[in-house]
Design a protein around this nucleic acid. Structure first.
Length: 570
RNA sequence: UGGCGAGUGGCCUAACGGUAAGGCACCUGACUCUGGAUCAGGGGAUUGAAGGUUCGAAUCCUUCCUCGCCAGCCA
């Protein structure tokens, strides 16, 4: 159940309309949905859309939503995935109560139903090889051919099926098939395979079974067992619906679930395919399923995306049947929106440039008061140490400022946020001509950040006191793929963004940032949102950049130079 | 080429026969101790095309076009 659904009080979509009508017209009194992941990988933002839909509907209509693992293929499934999926759904803010289920919980019942079909002459054991079955299946335009085993006596199929279960045959030797119609224009109805022999240990049932039901045979029946009323899945299962219905109609199942399909999520600059994500991980293109660049729930979490932002995003994009590609900016907008409201502000300098305030007494330290979040007065204030030697952001100074560059430059006065106005008096360079230090003066009357004479600098800079700031490593993240439609030219991996991660060492941050709790995302003023990485240690702080702030100056620069998609800073 | 599904401003989504709405993005201005946020305003859609029904069509009908999915013993 969602903690709250802030932005989408009146959101509706074609599925919710169906649900509402079913309730209104008495077809159901309680709505039961389910989220049915296969534990063969980590959940990603596309799954989040489905999770929000299924759990969201259950919550809105006073029903319930089950978490059911579709664990029918032991060769691809692992306990690690089962655990990660549960953690991710919970982190997203949803609760399945008592209803944690597995298709494997129903193996015995499913087997019994398969036997039922065999006895009814509606399923048979086929001795054809996989290749032969394919050849008999026909093509999109040509009907298939009946298997020579199609009409063998039910008793013979039954015997063979029992021996399949008993482990008498090797993988692939035989399968159980539904007897429907080899000439159907819907290929899924051309005697689909219901059971196959797989001698492999299952994460939950171990070696108890060596025959496993296919998705088609397991899914709808599991829905029926659990009393699912609305079995919501993605568009690619549309062609399976007739089979879903055929099985429900031909089996003595306890309920009549109905399947509805919606368009899966596609996002620009990212790939949402478990197959590809698995490759990124196994081939070491990223550091793991929870790499902050991954579109996985665990990656987004590590990156600092709040669950609320992900839920808001799901509400924002809606649910429909048209294939679509959502701009990643939409996700970033939803996330910035919650972070702007909730993230505490802190000072951090990513690329430090030394500033010496010449007219500020050596050894003196003042505690200046700074708002924790201008958006939220209740967040209160904190004090930050100010002293003679400071660090400011290197790109907040330009010796020869172009028009529209409002920050520090020789002779120019700017405000140091919540502290003093300073004026740059001298630029110190090393032998190579690189600026290494700025000699400045301050106006003591501007303490706190306001001038008694009403003077208003065009820029306000963030800063840290050199003697008080603590060092940190900061990892900057950008889109994993550099083009909006990765792989459109053929080679997906060639579109990997080489600048998707930039590691900055030698950053200087406000001391209390050392205490930022894991999972908390803060705003580094004027830079963006950041969160401590799990790699962070007391003495060796590591922060991940969740997202940059919107940056008009970076945009202006980008327009002028026509590069840097994510803009500036570091 | 068979079946199924879908086409609404750059992107997402709404309109359920009554004369195209909202969000994101973009642009402009105001305000601002974050070039953030906020506020105000703006540009932009002959609703894939062509016919037809109707007083009236994004919605109904016909034909066509385009895109997606289906020929795993994956899900």
């Amino acid at each position: 159940m969602s903690t709250e659904t802030p932005t989408a009080a009146e959101r509706s979509d074609f599925i919710r309309e169906i649900v509402a009508a079913d309730l209104r017209e008495g077809r159901h009194t309680t709505i039961v949905t389910r989220f049915p992941p296969e534990p063969n990988g980590y959940l990603h933002i596309g799954h989040a859309k489905s999770i929000c839909l299924n759990f969201g509907i259950a919550a809105e209509f006073g029903g319930r939503c089950h978490l059911r693992f579709d664990d029918t293929n032991p060769v691809k499934e692992e306990q690690e995935y089962l655990d990660a999926i549960e953690a991710d759904v919970r982190w997203l803010g949803f609760d399945w109560g008592e209803h944690l289920h597995h298709a494997s919980d129903y193996f015995e019942q499913l087997y019994a139903w398969a036997v039922h079909l065999v006895k009814a002459g509606k399923a048979y054991v086929d001795d054809l090889t996989a290749d032969e079955i394919r050849e008999h299946r026909g093509t999109l335009t040509e009907p298939g051919q009946n298997s020579p085993w199609r009409d063998r006596p039910a008793a013979e199929s039954l015997d063979l099926f029992e021996r399949m279960r008993a482990g008498e045959f090797p993988n692939g030797a035989r399968v159980l098939r539904a007897k429907i119609d080899m000439a159907s224009p819907n290929i899924n109805l051309r005697d689909p395979v219901l059971y196959r022999i797989v001698h492999a240990a299952h994460p939950r049932t171990g070696d108890a079974w060596c025959v496993y039901p296919t998705y088609d045979f397991a899914h709808g029946q599991s829905d029926a067992i659990e009393g699912i009323t609305h079995s919501i899945c993605t568009l690619e299962f549309e062609a399976h619906r007739p089979l879903y219905d055929w099985l429900i109609e031909n089996l003595p199942v306890p309920s009549r679930p109905r399947q509805y399909e919606f368009a899966r999520l596609n996002l620009t600059h990212t790939v949402l395919s478990k197959r590809v994500l698995l490759r990124l991980v196994t081939e070491g293109r990223v550091r793991g399923w929870d790499d902050p660049r991954m579109p996985t729930i665990s990656g987004l979490r590590r990156r600092g995306f709040p669950a609320e932002g992900i839920r808001d995003f799901a509400a924002l994009i809606g649910v429909a049947k048209a294939d679509s590609v959502v701009e990643i900016g939409m996700l970033e907008h939803a996330v910035r929106d919650v972070l702007n409201r909730t993230a505490p502000r802190r000072f951090a300098v990513l690329d430090p440039l030394r500033v010496v305030v010449e007219d500020y007494p050596e050894g003196q330290v003042e505690e200046v008061e700074v708002a924790n979040n201008p958006e939220d007065p209740a967040a209160g204030t904190r004090t930050v140490a100010f002293s003679r030697e400071l660090w400011i952001e290197r790109d907040d100074f330009l010796e020869e400022p172009p028009a529209k560059f409002f920050r520090l430059a020789p002779g120019r006065e700017v405000r140091l946020r919540s502290a003093y106005f300073i004026t740059c008096r001298e630029v110190v360079k090393d032998e190579a001509g690189r600026v290494v230090e700025l000699r400045c003066t301050h106006d003591p009357s501007t303490r706190g950040g306001d001038a008694p004479d009403g003077r208003r600098p065009k820029a306000t800079l963030h800063w840290v006191s050199a003697a008080h700031a603590v060092p940190a490593e900061v990892r900057l993240y950008d889109h994993l793929f550099s083009r909006p439609d990765p792989g459109a030219d053929g080679d997906l991996f060639a579109d990997l963004n080489p600048a998707s991660e930039t590691v900055l060492r030698g950053c200087r941050v406000e001391p209390d940032l050392a205490e930022t709790p894991a999972g908390a995302t803060v705003q580094f003023e004027r830079l963006g949102y950041f969160c401590p990485d799990p790699d962070s240690r007391p003495g060796r702080l590591v922060f991940n950049r969740t997202l940059t702030l919107k940056d008009t100056w970076a945009k202006l620069q980008a327009q002028g130079r026509h590069d840097t998609p994510q803009g500036g800073r570091g």
